[in-house]
Amino acid sequence: MLAYVIRRLFYAIPILIGVNLLTFTLFFVVNTPDDMARMQLGVKRVTPEAIEKWKAERGYDKPLLYNENAAGAARLTDTIFFEKSAKLFVFDFGRADDGRDIGHEIKTRMGPSLAIAVPTFLLGLFVTVSFALLLAFFRATNLDFWGVVLCVAMMSISSLFYIIGGQYLVSKVWHLVPISGYAGGLDAARFLLLPVLISVVAGIGSSTRWYRTIFLEEIGKDYVRTARAKGLSEAAVLFRHVLRNAMIPILTGVVVVIPLLFMGSLLVESFFGIPGLGSYTIDAINAQDFAVVRAMVFIGSVLYIVGLLLTDLSYTLVDPRVRLQ
């Protein structure tokens, strides 16, 4: 078990190096820092001096991989690769183009992101699993049929519509909650209610349908027939036998996203003006702040790998076959 976890952690290292090289290539090789400077400065103000100044301010004036002018170890460390990419491994993200410390920003913005993502995740999981169980219980009836139709319709609607429509209806027409904004402490609930609700509703369609398929697949298995042959009621069969087995694929599909909750949800945060990591990322994209995007890419992949690890561990929790072998 422990050996397994350690091996997975070892396996993560080449992946992170791969991610790092990929982002390095994307940000510094495909386009040179000169290109970026030119774009940031705008066509009108481009002079060689301005470009050099822009680069020097942000530490992009060093060689990419190897610094001939430096001495000793600095030949390798005093380079863009070391300063901008390798340092990510120790979670040193450096400064954003606007000069603020990215690490600090991430710390302060994590709270609001989690405040919206965690309730969304838990509530969403509960609602969709219950809804899917309901459909599975009434499978092959009209309720099931129309339930599936509703799911297909709901998953055909753009998430933008849920957000824009929800904001318009709940905040503008009914004046129930503020349209956007955020406050700390208990006050946050007022601002979080609508985005959480909208996120949950937007996810109902596809998740419910997926879970329903899993339930139906389990219901078709032999052990369910055995359970019925014992004289158990349909509810007992569904809750004691089917649900437990179905939790294996459901949990493993779901656990992988748990660490990514830190990243926040881009759209919702940006629409509702919540100062989380999602809106931070979008702002950085719009401002073409490469340092922030680079940092977020790295954090994202670290979290994804943690998610994979958690998935493997969650297998051992729900599946005795994995736990005991």
């Binding site: 982002t23 386009n31 774009m39 881009l266 990322t281 890419v297 994202g300 992949s301 790998i305």
Partner: peptide, 25 residues
């Protein structure tokens, strides 16, 4: 696994920004 580990939106964002820079320059 490497490609997958980068959240899709971010990878797209990074790549599109780079394409944008290339096209603009």
């Amino acid at each position: 696994t490497t490609l997958n580990s980068i959240p899709g939106v971010l990878l797209i964002a990074a790549a599109v920004l780079m394409v944008q820079v290339a096209i603009d320059t």
